[in-house]
Design a protein around this nucleic acid. Structure first.
Lengths: 207, 207
DNA sequence: CGCTGCGCTAAGCGCTCGCTCACCGTCGGC
DNA sequence: GCCGACGGTGAGCGAGCGCTTAGCGCAGCG
């Protein structure tokens, strides 16, 4: 988690914490399949096939198909939260920290779009306990962004009427990048990150 | 479950164009089920059950489960486009028209959240021809918003660096309301619409 | 060399899916 | 009062699902 991923665009090779190798290959295959077709439309045979294994191999490393989604969602949320925390705790004014948070968060949602899609849009497919665990992480994500905005307001740097509503809107804007971003489109993840950082600074009335 | 959504955004009772009555009841049931569990996780038995009919009754009115989704998506996109066109073609400056477009578009996504969820997030479940038809409607949606922003820039009313990128962001912000909005939450659709209209005016640097 | 443990496969179980089909009650027209 | 059309049902088909199980090949080790 603390690896060298200051990287402007492509991040360090993900999923390296997943071992053994066969379990990681299955998980990466599941991310691709879930992102492409959705959790419910993906079959265990499809996941195993993408990983070059038989359907039964999946159940050596994971108890159920849902456990795969849970692991993906957990790791993805940890990563997203890590990105935001890093930006929130750097030095500098609230404006710089918010711009940094938004641009890196957006870069992740665009650059690792397949992962982000699964993480952000397949939450309802999890069972109650797993969903509750993930929702707790999401509240922490919200708190990080709200914290920066509150700092900016307190410092007189931002002009915001509804802090919680604006926080919601900022996060919503960033998250939805995973829905529409197209790797073959005209924009790189870095460009979208820059554009969005500018838009968000306008939204909070940064001086 | 189906009640309590009495057109908070001031829209007409929807689905009235769907006849006969049994076909409409099935379609409304499908909207609810798709919005709750997703297209692929919804069974034809569930849809028919919600409409108080046997599973076979569905196939008297619709050829396949996918045709149901197609009809919902088509009608929903027509409605969304209609809302934007009405706002775009009213009288007044670009700022007023943009604020009107955003607030009514957001009101629809929040107030008719179940429909909007299906319309915006189940697009990939459609076959190639149906999806192409819907994508054409979405390009028209984009054009309406871009048109207002271009007007504002031309009139010196807005300050926008990347018109297409900002259009994308504005629409993305509005659409994602359908993902997070909660009828039992602290905000009414009207309040979110107002908040978002203000945020969007800031994004375009409205004078 | 034989034994053991383990990652993996081939086959398939029980179930539920989308969808079909033979049949039925109701009702307007003659 | 009978008849055909139509909207509906109950039962069930073939397919494909998530997941299980019996057994295989092979590396490590005496």
């Amino acid at each position: 988690m603390s690896t060298a991923e200051e990287t402007t665009g492509g991040e360090a090779e993900p999923w390296e914490e997943v071992t053994p190798d066969a379990a990681r290959r299955l998980l990466v295959a599941a991310v691709e399949a879930f992102a492409e077709r959705g959790y419910h439309a993906t079959t265990t045979r499809d996941i195993a096939g993408r990983a070059g294994m038989s359907p039964a191999a999946l159940y050596i490393h994971y108890k159920t198909k849902e456990e795969l989604l849970h692991r993906i969602s957990r790791i993805g949320h940890d990563k997203a939260l890590d990105i935001l925390r890093t930006a929130a705790r750097r030095e500098g004014g609230a404006g710089e920290r918010l711009a940094d948070a938004v641009s890196s968060f957006v870069r992740w949602h665009a650059g690792r779009r397949t992962t982000a899609r699964v993480v952000q849009y397949e939450l309802d497919a999890l069972g109650p306990e797993a969903r509750a665990e993930i929702l707790a992480l999401r509240r922490q994500v919200d708190a990080e962004v709200r914290g920066i905005i509150e700092d900016g307001v307190a410092a007189g740097e931002f002009d915001v009427l509804d802090v919680q509503g604006t926080t919601l809107a900022v996060l919503s804007l960033c998250i939805d990048v995973a829905r529409w971003f197209n790797i073959d489109g005209p924009r790189t993840p870095e460009q979208v990150g820059e554009l969005y950082a500018d838009l968000v600074l306008r939204m909070v009335g940064a001086k």
